[in-house]
Design a protein around this nucleic acid. Sequence first.
DNA 1: GGACTAAAGTTAGCATCTCTAACATGGATT
DNA 2: AATCCATGTTAGAGATGCTAACTTTAGTCC
Lengths: 212, 212
Amino acid sequence: MPDETHAPAVTPKAAYHHGDLRAQLITAVRGLVEAHGPDGFSVAEAARRAGVSSAAPYKHFKDRHEILRGVVSEAMDRLHAAMEAAAAAQPAGSLDAVAAIGLAYVDFARAEPGVFRLVFGLTEGHENAPDLQQKGESCLGVVVKAVAARLDLHPNDPEVQRRAYILWSFVHGHSFLHIDMKTKVTTAEIDDWEYLMEISRAILAQAARSQS
Amino acid sequence: MPDETHAPAVTPKAAYHHGDLRAQLITAVRGLVEAHGPDGFSVAEAARRAGVSSAAPYKHFKDRHEILRGVVSEAMDRLHAAMEAAAAAQPAGSLDAVAAIGLAYVDFARAEPGVFRLVFGLTEGHENAPDLQQKGESCLGVVVKAVAARLDLHPNDPEVQRRAYILWSFVHGHSFLHIDMKTKVTTAEIDDWEYLMEISRAILAQAARSQS
DNA sequence: GGACTAAAGTTAGCATCTCTAACATGGATT
DNA sequence: AATCCATGTTAGAGATGCTAACTTTAGTCC
């Protein structure tokens, strides 16, 4: 097997004794977070699941917060990819592209509520994590791109930025509310697609008229 | 002193030896959550702050989750009150009333980001907590009431419910995004009031036209 | 007033967790 | 082959969650 790519783009070291423990720990923690909630995980349990001693993780991560940051980072990559893919599957510049991005977002939240909450609930060791900050902005960038295409404006146009942010706020809030009161949705059943299309239409409808 | 009301509506027991430890613990935990993040609190530290032994809290709360639920419950009461007050300060049925409720929400998130996150991030012991569930719906009720007044429809009208939910989603998402990337707002400075007014106008503008 | 009861607090202690220190091992480089 | 260092191990200190068993105090009933 001539593939020397034992560096999965995360760290240039990850396949010595164990296989690659780092990735396996992140997977284990992801599972724990999903099973027992964002704070219901322990380094010890993750190590146990990965079949190593409880001290092994500290060779890969400084402390428990850094492990969580690893999970978040990986999750944001997947979220970003999902958003891009959703947009790419629709005609460029279409309203459907915007709605599809939103749906991908909601779907992610629904599929992995624990991780989703973790991504947007990190505060402990998250203070100065420029990489995560940048990944977040990168996700917003997907929305901005689609909105810009739809409005036929430059992505840097403040009008584009504003509307993209509004859309993101809505989708973000909807996702959170959705996973919070999972079954007990006060507003009855909601067809997400119709819903997102309607919002997108409403927010992107009227032409640029900033007057503040 | 003929007042036998030593039951402060929370529990019929709360003023023996210590004063009332229960409330004091909740206050302490609130401070800890605000200072060190939602999961950066410990029962031991809270007890220390209240000046009691580390086992004392368990006379008032079953476990750590129940303490958090207490904090959340108290916070939701305050949030609800703030929303009501904001609405009451504006003309009934006005767009300003709707926007004011949203502003109160955002202000709460900004003032107590840790607690805010806790309120909407609880998952551990939150599973079956009908009281919290009900308080959440009660908050939504404030929005519904204002929207119904604005549209001159009955609060039970599905159109009202839908638009109120949309508005809440947006405000909720905005609040979260705001406290997440606190200083680093991509979309530059935002005048919340103008912002909320614009959204409210957009969402409540067109007349009822459900066609799904 | 004095004895009983139960609430509210204390100390002691077990199991668990985080993280560090000191040691062991085995791949990769030279 | 010798060496180095990443990666793992065990041992252990310190802190935490929570329980058990005991003590203190306030209210109640006679």
